[in-house]
């Protein structure tokens, strides 16, 4: 197991390097010139000033040199500065990450419990009323786009009834978790809907598949109670594909959801990504993209570990 882990982690390094190079050079190819965002229009006439600024920012060096300069700074822990606001990117992330983490964690936990729970009940009572409810929930949740759902719940619960705030994370001056809990209700709910639906469908299908297996019949022929047949024999084997999609969702804990965060003006990483893209703030784009990529790579290691723990056939190969 330890050997396997070390191997996986070492394999991550070239992947991350490749991704960093891709992010850097892809942005290099875009026609955006950060200088245009940095200077005010009335300064545009003085070409000498612009050139001096370019030189001082190191923008005139060859791309390859700039890449390695950026990379070494990154390894040293220096993420650079936003060219728009001038604040350190590390600071931006430290400020925004808690918001994203909080929202994503709540919707992840919510959708996991509800999705797996209803998926299980749906499979066990196949074609019963709970299964119909589950199936409708699955189709609706998957097919309605999140931004639309977000707008609908804002319209109903924030504007019509005025029960809940329609955006942002907290009222000015409030910091306690319970003070801002009601700000989270709508975005967390909206975010959880689609995740719940996918998980529900996965759990249901995987369970139905396993329940038709011969070893379930054998388990029943041993005379063990039905709940044991479902939970011990069926769910344990059905869990594997479900866990894979669950773990591949972990990166939203770091990257947030761009759609949800912008619909609810939630001040998380997702909205940072969006605003930095529209502003051409390329140092921020590079770091956030790299962060999300690293999160995805780490999740894939988790998937390997979880699969090995759940399925002995994988462990011994």
């Amino acid at each position: 197991m330890a050997k396997f882990l070390v191997k996986k982690i070492l394999a991550m390094i070239p992947m991350l390097l490749a991704i960093s190079a891709m992010v850097f050079f892809a942005l290099e190819l875009t026609p955006t010139d950060p200088i245009n965002y940095l200077i005010s229009p009335d300064m545009a006439s003085s070409a000498g000033n612009i050139e001096a600024l370019r030189e001082s920012l190191g923008l005139n060096d060859p791309a390859i040199i700039r890449y390695f300069r950026w990379l070494f700074n990154l390894i040293r822990g220096d993420f650079g500065y936003s060219i728009i606001s001038g604040t350190s990117i590390r600071e931006i992330i430290m400020l925004r990450l808690p918001a994203t983490l909080e929202l994503a964690l709540v919707s992840l936990v919510l959708s996991t419990i509800i999705g797996i729970g209803i998926g299980l009940l749906s499979a066990i009572n196949q074609n019963g009323w709970i299964d119909y409810v589950g199936r409708v929930m699955g189709v609706v949740g998957i097919s309605i786009p999140q931004f639309f759902f977000g707008i609908v719940v804002i319209q109903i619960f924030a504007i019509q009834f005025g029960w809940l705030p329609f955006g942002s994370r907290m009222a000015p001056g409030q910091t306690a978790f319970f003070d801002r809990l009601h700000f989270m209700v709508l975005p967390a709910f909206t975010m959880a809907i689609a995740m719940t639906a996918a998980l529900l469908r996965y759990t249901r299908n995987s369970m139905l598949d396993v329940l038709n297996k011969d070893y379930i019949k054998l388990a029943r022929s041993k005379g063990i109670p039905e709940w044991k047949v479902y939970l011990k024999h069926a769910f344990r084997t059905a869990l594997r594909p479900v866990l894979v999609i669950l773990i591949f969702r972990l990166p939203i804990l770091i990257g947030g959801s761009i759609v949800i965060e912008s619909v609810f003006s939630w001040p998380g990483i997702g909205s940072v990504i969006l605003s930095s893209i529209s502003a051409g703030d390329y140092p921020v784009i590079m770091v956030t993209t790299l962060l999300v990529a690293a999160a995805i790579l780490i999740s894939s290691i988790f998937v390997d570990i979880a699969t090995a723990l759940l399925d002995p056939r994988v462990r011994f190969e």
């Binding site: 011969d214 070893y215 019949k217 054998l218 056939r313």
Partner: peptide, 9 residues
């Protein structure tokens, strides 16, 4: 079918 009669996990 003994191949599928035992729970693999």
């Amino acid at each position: 079918d003994p191949m599928t009669s035992l729970n693999p996990v």
